[in-house]
Design a protein around this nucleic acid. Sequence first.
RNA 1: GGGCGGUUAGCUCAGUUGGUAGAGCACCGGCUUUACACGCCGGCUGUCACAGGUUCGAGCCCUGUACCGCCCACCA
Length: 862
Amino acid sequence: MSDPSFSPRRAVTAPDKPALEGLEQKWSAAWDAGGVYRFDRARDRAAVYSIDTPPPTVSGSLHVGHVFSYTHTDAIARFQRMRGREVFYPMGWDDNGLPTERRVQNYYGVRCDPSLPYDPSFTPPDPSTRAGQGKKPPAVPVSRPNFIELCARLTQEDEHVFEDLWRRLGLSVDWSLTYATIGRTAQNVSQAAFLRMLARGEAYQIEAPTLWDVDFRTAVAQAELEDRERPGAYHRIKFDQAGTPGAWLEIDTTRPELIPACVALVAHPDDERYRHLFDTDVLTPLFGARVPLKAHRLADPEKGTGVAMICTFGDVTDVVWWRELQLPARAIILPNGTFRAVAWGSDGFETVDVPRAQAAYDQLAGLSSEKARARIVDLLRDSGDMLGEPRPVMHAVKFFEKGDRPLEILTSRQWFVRTMDHREALIARGTELAWHPPHMRARFENWVNGLNGDWCISRQRFFGVAFPVWYPVRDDGSLDYGRPLVPDESRLPVDPSTDVPDGYRPEQRGEPGGFAGDPDVMDTWATSSLSPQITAGWLDDPDLFARVFPMDLRPQAHDIIRTWLFSTVLRSHLEHGALPWANAAISGWVLDPDRKKMSKSKGNVVTPMALLDEHGSDGVRYWAASGRPGVDTAFDAGQMKVGRRLSIKLLNAAKFALGGSLQAGPVTEPLDRAFLTSLAHLVRECTADFEAYDYARALQRTETAFWQFCDDYLELIKSRRYGDRGEASAASATTAMLVALSTFLRLFAPVLPFVTEEVWSWWQEGSIHRSRWPEPADLEEAAGGGADVAPLAHASEILGEIRRWKSLNKVSISTPVNVTLSFAGGVYDALPVFELDLRAAGRIQDLRRVEGGDGVIVELVS
RNA sequence: GGGCGGUUAGCUCAGUUGGUAGAGCACCGGCUUUACACGCCGGCUGUCACAGGUUCGAGCCCUGUACCGCCCACCA
C-alpha cells in the first residue's frame, strides 16, 4: 500500500473513555517541544508556502472576530503543510502608534510632554492602586523617552496574553518568527524603505493643508477618515457688497465661526443670479474684511443660496477652491483646535474698521470651534447679520476614525508618498492578485479610483518609527527643509532626536549652522505596509528573502483593504516592482445575533478564552471554519456545540475502528471497495476546495461523509467486522475502516487539530500535522482499483427504510424483521454485493424480492 | 449619488455547467443498538424577497423593483 498511515504504526493505545478535556494543553506543549511548526529554511521557494500574517493591535483585546479569521488562515496553513509545502507562518504584534499611546495614558495615568527631560529613575503609578478609586487623579506628565518605555513595557505584557490565546486556539505559527511593528527590524525596514523612496522621489515633504485631529494634534490620512452623523445648523448670513450701500449677498453656512477665516465667496460660473457680480468685493460681517466673489464649477447653485463662503479651511472643497482660485490663506485655528490670537489690520488683509473687527475677534480667540460657533452666533444676531434663526440639520462630518472631535484642515509640513501617479499601475496590480472571494477586488479598485491626494505618512506623535532625517539650521535659526540630512542605511535605525547626523557634533543640535531632527513619527500603516519585508528578512537576510518573497498569502478582513492591503501593494510596487503576495484571502466579520458587527461599545463581546474553555478549541474552530471566505457570519454558540460533538464522535468512532482484532487483509468485499472509492472522490473534492481557499466547503463535505461513514457504513459492516462471516471478510472490513479513519482524520486535521492529533497518536507515529495529505490514488489502490459506488447508496437506502419502519412502529432497532423488496432491475443487480451486510445490519430474517414496483415492505417476524 | 454583497424551513446557512427544494440547530416522537445517551432512529417545517423575460424546464441566466448590510463620495 502506498500510504503507510493506512495501517497502525505502533501499538494501539485508544483509551476506554476518550475525552476532549485537556487536549489543548497536552498537544500545544507537544507541538512546541517537537518543533512541529518550525519553518525549515533549507527549502527553496517553490516548496515554501509563506503567509503575511496580520499583526493584531496589542493595545486592544482579541475578540471573537480575531479567532474567526485567524482560524481560517490556520486551516489553510495546515492544509498547505500537509500538502508538502514548508509553511512560513510568522506572528506579528502591532504595538506601534496611537492606540498604544492611548492605552498607556489610560493604564498608567500619564501623558507625554516632549519638553521634559528623560528621568531614568521614573516609575509609573501602580495601575492597580488607580483602579476603583472613583475620581481619576490628573495625568502625570512624563518625558517622551519615559513614555516610550512605558509603551514598550505594556505592549510586552499584552503580547504574552495574545500568544497564550493563539496557542490555545491551536494556530500553527512558528513562534520563533514573531515581529513587532515597533521592533528594531520594523524600524530598520521602515526607515530604509523611506530613505529609498526619498532617493527615488517617491516620498516628499510639503507644507500644505492637511486633515488634522485637534485632540491627538496630528495629521491623519484619507484612509483613516470616517463619516459620523452629527447635528448641525444652517446659518443664513449677510455679506454687504463693497461700494453698494444697502446691497448684500446671502450665504448659508454650518460653520459661521469661520467667517474671520473667510477669503472669498464663490458661485457657479453659469449662475445668472450672481454672474454680474463676479470679481466684485463683499465685506465679511462683523470683521469687515474685503473679499471677492469668485466663480467656480464646484459651486452648486442648488445648495443654499448658491453662494458659498471659502474659508481657511472649512472642508476639503475649500482647499480645492483656495488652490485653484489662487486665494490667500487666513489660518485662525491652532493645532490644538482653538482660535489663535490675530492682530487685525497687520496681517495683509484689507479691513474697513480694524477696531471693530478686533473687538469681535477677541471674543473668539482662545475658544474651540464649537464654543466659537456659539459665541459668533450671538454676535451675528446682535449685529443683524444673521437672517432668521439657525435651522437644525443632521449632516455627516469627517472624523479621524480614532478621534472624538471633527477634523480640522490645517496647514502644516508633512511627509507624503506619491500615490496619485501610480493609480493605474495599482489597479493593474489588483487584477494580478488572486482575491478570495473574487468580488473583494472591487473594493480595492473603488478605493484607488477614489483617492484624492497623496498618502500623508507623518504623524505628530511619539510612539512610532521616527523619520531618519535631520535639517540644517540656518544662521537665522530657521530650518532648511529643502536639504534634509540623511544617514547611511548601515546606521539604521536612528532616532534623530538623540542621534546626530554625519559630520555634526551633538552640541550643534538646534544651533545656527547645526542641525535639528525631524520630530515626527511615521503613520502606523507606513510600517505595517512593509510586513512582508519585515518578516522575510528583506534587508538583513537575503537568503530567507529569496525563499519566501513574494509571499503566497495575505489574509485579512475586508475593512482594511483601503489601508493595509492597499498600502502593502503600493510599497511592494514601488520597492520591488511586484505584488507582495499571490493571494489575498479576505475574511468577513462576526456579527452578533442582531446582525450588527460585534463590538466592545455594544457590550456584546464574548471573551475568546471563555469560549475556548466552554466549547473546546476544536469546537470554536469548527464554528469559525464553517463561515465561508469573505462572508460576515453570525456568532453561533450552537455551531460550536456541533463542532464539539463532532470531535467527540471522532474519538468514539476511532475507538471502535481501533478496537478489537486488527487483523488486516486485502479489501475484497465490494461494499468496502465502494466506500473507499467514494472516499477517493471526497478527497479529490476537498483538495480542490482547499486549493481554492474554501476551507468551509471542504469541512462541510468531510463532515457529511463522516456522518454517513458512522451511521450507515459502520453499521453495515459491523457484524462482518466482528468475524460473523469469516476472517477474510472481517479483514477486508478492518482494513477499509482503518483506511477511512486515517483519511478522515487528515481531512479534518486543518480544522480540528487537537482531536485529530489525539486520535492519530493512538496508532500512528509523528504528528498528523506533518503527515501527508491523503491522495485519491492511494485510496483507489487500497480499494483494489476503482469500484462501483452505487451498491453503497442502495444498501443505505434500504437500511433507512427498515429503520423508518421500526421507528414508526416504535420497536427496537434490534427487532428481527422480514423484508420484501420491490425494485427495478439496477438494485437487484447490486443486491448480491451487499445482501449479507444488509441482512445483518437490518436484523433481517427473511429477505424476499418481487418484480416491479418501488419500495420496501417490512413485517415483524411472526 | 456611485460600487459591492445579500434576501431559500422558526434560527444559522448550503444549493458551482438550468433538470423532482437540502443540512444542522430548534421542536415533536421513538429506541439500552457488544464505539459513542456527549448516543442512535424517525417525524414536522418552504409563494426559494417581488415583478417581468429567456427556456420544454429557473432558487440558479437576463431586466427592473423593494428591503438589509458594507465600502466610497457629497457635506455651503
